[in-house]
Design a protein around this nucleic acid. Structure first.
Lengths: 224, 224
DNA sequence: CCGGATCCGTAACGATACTG
DNA sequence: CAGTATCGTTACGGATCCGG
């Protein structure tokens, strides 16, 4: 049994990378941050991962107390993987990385890669993390592919959640790829509406406020 | 020339992991977040890294616009690697990971691993990120191994910087390992003072306030 | 000495096939 | 559905060597 590779540094970052730094591990965490998932959900949403590695990773992360396994109520042999509280504490780090990585997405990536609505939801959350809070009290709803999520702005705080908004000032309909392209600032929300790539129910002012909340009115970072 | 491994997902996190997700890359970023460094500085502070991999990583990160190379003023053949603004934007993500990873550090790690004062400085910064701001106006100074850094609390905001404090309410002397052990909550600041592992100049109240600022009065996260 | 490049053994990963 | 078993490929780790 070969010994696991370690860094041998008494440092929080090195420690973190020994646990979640291997290939695919962060993406597995991402999937479980979206919600509990079965083995086959993970293989479906992580195209290219081999079952062998996925099993390795799940075993290791379980041993480390980062994920836990539940039985599926109705299914005797079904297992449901979920993050433990310890695992859920990776969310800020994952958001930070995802936000940073979005500026590397290109139009060619969009063409060659698969897109999922849930990844757009992740992007939305990372944008709220650093966005400018607004002095309004309203909600926005997003219908991306077959999933629905929303942003609620109350008391100067914006929060994202799955599911529909209560009385949305704005409802956006989009496919996953377009939604992520907007988050990556490859296309502006207004441009997407005009060209018909997304459909918006609500007035232009609401679109403007939502755009500002998410920092989408700021230019993309210039290349270094 | 083999094609680089990619995830093929149109997602910010996948994109980030394709760029900084390989082994050692994050630790190289960490070193450059501490400050610009030469090739040999990096090999010294990343024990176990092979020169060919370090050269590979530096080349790739340079191509991606994450690091840049300067000439050392006095040395014709010396090169100084530094982060670009794009690379420096990784700081929040690195802090998030480092903070999370600190709770995995153990006493056995401390014994087997190398410690550096700069990693303690990193830990300090991550603790400020989430600490409770205090309604005081004072500064704390830390002399760890042969390095000096400090925290300034003004207007309800705490900031960390290299170098000494102006009129420190507290000066802490410690070795790197002990300092990181305190950050990892393997030992409390008070316990460290009492057992003589660190030396504190300042009154107990100042220690108390600093401890609270850094969240060191909170218990370590329980195992999941 | 600094900043690498070359070579080779080992560990990790990827694809496919197969099983309780 | 939830994984193993097997095997070829890629990446990493360690040592050595090289040109300024």
């Amino acid at each position: 049994m070969p010994e696991k590779r370690q860094y041998g540094q008494f440092c929080g970052l090195a420690s973190a990378m020994e646990i979640v730094g291997e290939r695919w591990t962060m993406l597995i965490i991402r999937e479980l941050l979206i919600g509990p998932a079965r083995f086959s959900d993970l293989t479906d949403n992580l195209p290219g991962v081999s079952p062998n590695m996925l099993a390795d990773r799940l075993r290791f992360l379980t041993d480390q107390g980062i994920i836990a396994v539940d039985r599926v109520p109705g299914d005797a042999r079904g297992k449901l993987y979920r993050l433990t509280p310890l695992g859920a504490e990776l969310r800020p780090a994952v958001h930070g990385l995802a936000r940073w990585g979005m500026s590397f997405l290109t139009d060619e990536d969009a063409a060659r890669s698969t897109s999922r609505a849930a990844w757009g939801f992740l992007a939305l959350q990372t944008m709220i993390d650093v966005g400018t809070p607004l002095a309004v009290d309203e909600e926005y709803e997003f219908r991306v592919a077959d999933e629905v999520f929303s942003i609620a702005v109350h008391d100067g705080k914006a929060t994202a959640q799955r599911g529909p908004a209560h009385q949305p000032a704005l409802v956006i309909h989009a496919d996953a790829e377009t939604f992520i392209r907007i988050g990556a600032k490859l296309i502006s929300p207004f441009e997407a509406v005009i060209t018909g790539r997304i459909k918006a129910e609500g007035d232009l002012d609401a679109i403007q406020r939502c755009t500002q909340l998410l920092g989408l009115d700021q230019p993309r970072r210039a290349a270094a």
